[in-house]
């Protein structure tokens, strides 16, 4: 399955919807989107990975790169993910300590107090 990307902004939070496989072939598209969002002043990103079928270390690198960029602007990049097979790769690499990972978009928004 190819990679489908979409995004919307709610209040100051930009929600990036990702669907499909994030690997060495498709990850550059996600990287370009994250860079473009940051360049346009979106510094609080929430990447919804609930429809991601596959994620490898290339995809992790893109997410870490995005995190680095938003942090340079005192921003945030957090994730929505409940799939065990995706969470496993975050655990193996220790990245669960780096990213805020939420069970749903609403939970993430609530954590930020942005749904008020």
């Amino acid at each position: 399955m190819d990679l489908k990307l979409d995004h919307r902004t709610e209040d100051r939070l930009t929600i990036v919807e990702v669907e499909g496989e994030i690997d060495v072939y498709t990850a550059p598209r996600l990287r370009e989107l994250l860079i473009d969002l940051v360049n346009k002043g979106n510094f609080h990103l929430l990447v919804n990975m609930e429809k991601v079928d596959f994620l490898d270390s290339t995809g992790l690198g893109v997410l870490v790169g995005g995190l680095k960029r938003v942090r340079a602007h005192d921003g945030s990049l957090e994730l929505v993910c409940t799939q065990e097979r995706i969470l496993k790769i975050f655990r193996i690499t220790g990245l669960t300590k780096v990213f805020g990972i939420y069970a749903s978009v609403d939970e993430a928004k609530e954590a930020h107090g942005r749904d008020k």
Partner: peptide, 26 residues
């Protein structure tokens, strides 16, 4: 030995060695 996550920020986006770390974890 794989670097701790904090050390990654200097080598983004390639993260050399991360793929091997994932393989050994799997």
């Amino acid at each position: 030995g794989f670097r701790p996550p904090e050390a990654m920020f200097g080598i983004v986006p390639e993260l050399p060695g991360l793929g091997i770390a994932v393989i050994t974890g799997l």
